[in-house]
Design a protein around this nucleic acid. Structure first.
Lengths: 207, 207
DNA sequence: CGTGTAACTTACGGTTGTGTAGGTACGCGT
DNA sequence: ACGCGTACCTACACAACCGTAAGTTACACG
C-alpha cells in the first residue's frame, strides 16, 4: 500500500504535476508517456491528473504551451537589438543556452507531437518558431531587394541548423555553447567558403 | 467475415507487408502505429506479421534498414565527384529529391525512433547520416588547416538545414527542389552576408 | 468540537494492442 | 485425384492504458 500523498493546495499540486509531466514527456515522447508513470512519480493517484487537466491531451497542451512561451520569450529578447550579424549570433546563442539549461523542454519540442485529434498530420512544434523567424526574414528581404518568397527557405534552414546541432550537443556536451554558437553563426554569415579559422567569440552581453 | 486473403508466395507477401508498414509507420510514427492497422491494410491477419518479422520491433527494424540503405546510397552517389561547392549542392539536391520522391521514407526518418529496448535514449535516425558527413568534413578540415574537432558542428548544421527545410517543403511543395537546393547551398557556401540575389541553378548532371 | 469542503483514493469498465496456440484451406507435384 | 506442406485464420491469454464513479481522509473555520 503506497503511503498517502502529502496534501497540497491545488495550485501547488498543479505546478508539481506539470514539472513531473515535463520530465516524463521529455524522456518518452507523447505516445509512449503514460499518466500512470506521471502520477506515480508525483506520488499521487491518477484521478488527480484528470481533476487538474482533464486528460492526457490537456496535460500535454499545458506543458507545451509553457515551453513555447518560455523559448519564444528568450529568443525575442536576445534578438531585440544590434547589427544583423550580432542578432543572428545572439539568437543562436539563446537557443543553445535553452538547450543546455532546459534539456527536458528541448527534448519535448523535438519529439513527435500528437495528431490533431481530427486526424491531421504530425506537426513539429519548432515549425512555429521557424515561421516567426520567417516573418523577420521576409521583411528584411523585401528591404534588401531579395525575393521575399524565398525567405521561408532561409528561416527554416537556420532553425534546422541550431536544432540539429543542439540535439548533437545534448549528447556530447562539449564545447561550451558560446563556442558552438559562434561557429554556427560564422557558418551562416560567412559561408563555408570564407570560414574563419577560429570564429571570434561574442563579447558578453550586459543584461 | 473478411474474405480470405489472396494466397501469395512468402517473399512476395513479405515485400508487400514491408510496403504497407512503411506507409503506416510514416503516418503514425513507431509508437502510435499498430500491427492491427498494418495487417488490415494488407488484407491479412496479424499472425502473418509475426511469422515474417517476429514482432513490431523486427518489422520496424527491417523498414528502417531499407530506408537508410536507400538514402545513404543515393547521397553517396551524388557527392562522388566534382568540386567542393558542387558536391555540396548535389548532396542537398539528392536529399531533397529523396524528400520529394519518398515522402513516406523521409517521414519515418524524422519521427521518433523507439527506445533501444534496454532503456537507452531516443536516437534520431538522421544522426547516422550526420555522422558520416562529419567524417568527410573532419578529413577535409585537417587538410585545410581547420580544427577537425569542430567538424561535427558543421556536419550537423548542414544536415539539420536540409532536414528542416525538407520538412517544410513537404507541406508547401513549392518551389521545385532544384531551386530550393540552390538556395540552401548558396546559403551554406556564400553565407548570408554575400547571398546572391538569385542563386544559379546547377547544370543537369548526366547519369 | 463538529461539519463541510477540498484533496486524494480505491475500484471498476472498457478499449486497444501485443504475442501465441492450434486449427483450416489452398494449390502444387505426382 | 490425393496427399502434404505452405500460407493463412480464428481464438485466446494477458497486459497496459485511459477515463469515471463513488467513497474516504484531512484540514479550516465557525
Amino acid at each position: 500500500m503506497t503511503v498517502r500523498a502529502q496534501r497540497l493546495p491545488a495550485t501547488a499540486r498543479r505546478a508539481q504535476l506539470i514539472d513531473v509531466a515535463r520530465v516524463v514527456f521529455a524522456k518518452r515522447g507523447y505516445e509512449a508517456a503514460s499518466l500512470e508513470e506521471i502520477a506515480s512519480k508525483a506520488k499521487v493517484s491518477r484521478p488527480v491528473l484528470y481533476e487538474h487537466f482533464g486528460g492526457k491531451e490537456g496535460l500535454y497542451a499545458v506543458v507545451i504551451d509553457r515551453e513555447m512561451e518560455y523559448l519564444v520569450r528568450r529568443m525575442a529578447e536576445s534578438i531585440a537589438t544590434g547589427a544583423p550579424r550580432e542578432r543572428m549570433e545572439q539568437a543562436a546563442l539563446a537557443f543553445l543556452v535553452y538547450v543546455r539549461d532546459q534539456p527536458d523542454g528541448f527534448a519535448i519540442l523535438t519529439h513527435d507531437a500528437p495528431m490533431s485529434s481530427s486526424g491531421g498530420t504530425m506537426s513539429s512544434l519548432l515549425n512555429d518558431v521557424a515561421e516567426r523567424v520567417g516573418d523577420v526574414f521576409a521583411s528584411a528581404f523585401k528591404d534588401a531587394g531579395y525575393d521575399p518568397k524565398t525567405a521561408p527557405i532561409y528561416a527554416h534552414a537556420l532553425v534546422g541548423m541550431v536544432t540539429f546541432v543542439g540535439q548533437w550537443w545534448t549528447d556530447v556536451r562539449k564545447p561550451p555553447v558560446e563556442e558552438v554558437a559562434s561557429h554556427i553563426s560564422a557558418l551562416a554569415w560567412m559561408g563555408l567558403r570564407r570560414l574563419p579559422k577560429k570564429p571570434a567569440r561574442l563579447p558578453a552581453k550586459k543584461a
